[in-house]
């Protein structure tokens, strides 16, 4: 949990809004009745930072986190009733950051105890995204056992991938929380997040700096990078290209001031407030309907009274039909028995 939430917080801190983030959490850890600290998920045993916080939007949770939904999110092939917050609304100028974590192995990642997604599935999904022009560049990060095998099958352009351990290697957790009785975060993600703490919105840190931070001794596994599909040099690719939502803004010279009364928000609050104060004076004397009759009860009470007045009637047409049917059946049997 803390893995994905740590990445979520980092990405939010660097400027990407919730509408551009799709967070899929298969377990409800924060509000689980066995969590000693309700509403909190901590990335460290010291419990100094709460990743769940006050402001979080989980788009897919619980049983909704399935391989099918994940691939539908990537490829965009969804039923029309799926709301916008659950869709990846990217186009050919979007940089997409995909982070996956969980239990995995050689070219697979386990979903929900009964499903797996394979490296081929993700590779094909990315290819579909490329064909449908749903990304400009993808940064794929995965923290599982034998994670590097998951990106070995990609074949679409502009993908930069990194994993926490290579084939036949496990990825290890960082530390345990003795009160909660679980290990709180994994090593690879922990060190990546620690690196990210030094990155802010205006930082010029590059991907190469991130990859240079990889230390097999600290990770207890060999994290890998795959950059052959990526057409830019990594030492010129900024971290904020993927992690940050830095937007270009131009400051224009002020023009004539015009006030529009419709849908004032935020700064226009002052105007609307003054009008509503005027209005309230005229309407405060309006009579509020004081209807004593319990609107909701009338139908239920009438059913009760109907039942009390007359006993429930049996279905007489049905009875008639069955008698006719049985009678005809017996007539048929009798007629056949009379024959030769």
């Amino acid at each position: 949990m803390a893995n994905a939430l740590g990445m979520y917080r980092t990405v939010k801190r660097l400027g990407i809004p919730d509408s551009n983030i799709i967070l899929m959490l298969a377990d409800d850890a924060a509000c689980n009745s066995r969590n000693k600290f309700p509403g909190c998920v901590y990335p460290a045993a010291a419990r100094d930072l709460d990743l769940y916080g006050d402001n979080i939007e989980v788009d897919y949770r619980g049983y909704e986190v399935t391989v099918e939904n994940f691939i539908r999110v990537l490829t965009g092939r969804m039923d029309s009733s799926v709301p916008r917050s659950k869709r990846l609304l990217s186009d050919d100028r979007s940089n997409v950051f995909v982070y996956m974590t969980g239990h995995g192995g050689n070219e697979f990642l386990k979903f929900q105890d009964n499903e797996e997604i394979s490296a081929f599935d993700i590779a094909d999904a990315f290819e579909q995204m490329w064909q449908k022009k749903r990304y400009n560049e993808i940064f794929f990060m995965i923290d599982t056992c034998q994670a590097n095998t998951m990106y070995s099958k990609f074949y679409s352009p502009n993908i930069l991938a990194t994993g926490s351990s290579k084939l036949d290697e496990n990825s290890y957790s960082y530390e345990n929380d003795m009160d909660l009785g679980i290990s709180v975060i994994d090593r690879f993600t922990h060190y990546v997040l620690r690196f990210m703490e030094s990155v802010n919105k205006t930082s010029q840190a590059t991907m190469q700096d991130l990859f240079d931070m990889y230390d097999p001794d600290k990770f207890a596994s060999h994290a890998g990078v795959r950059s052959d599909l990526f057409n830019r040099p990594i030492d010129q690719t900024l971290i904020t290209d993927f992690f940050g939502g830095v937007s270009q803004a131009e400051v224009l010279a002020p023009e004539e001031e015009f006030y529009y009364s419709s849908t004032p928000e935020g700064g226009h609050q002052q105007e609307s407030e003054s009008f509503t104060h005027v209005d309230s004076a005229t309407t405060s004397g309006a009579v509020k309907s004081n209807n004593d009759e319990i609107h909701g009860y009338s139908d239920l009470l009438s059913v009760v009274q109907d039942l009390q007045r007359e006993p429930p009637k049996r279905d007489t047409t049905g009875l008639f039909r069955t008698w006719v049917s049985s009678g005809l059946m017996f007539a048929l049997v009798a007629w056949v028995s009379m024959r030769k």
Partner: peptide, 15 residues
């Protein structure tokens, strides 16, 4: 023909 008759009787019984 017997089956058809019985099917119709069943439909009659069931409605």
């Amino acid at each position: 023909s017997y089956t058809v008759i019985l099917t119709l009787l069943s439909t009659l019984a069931c409605g």
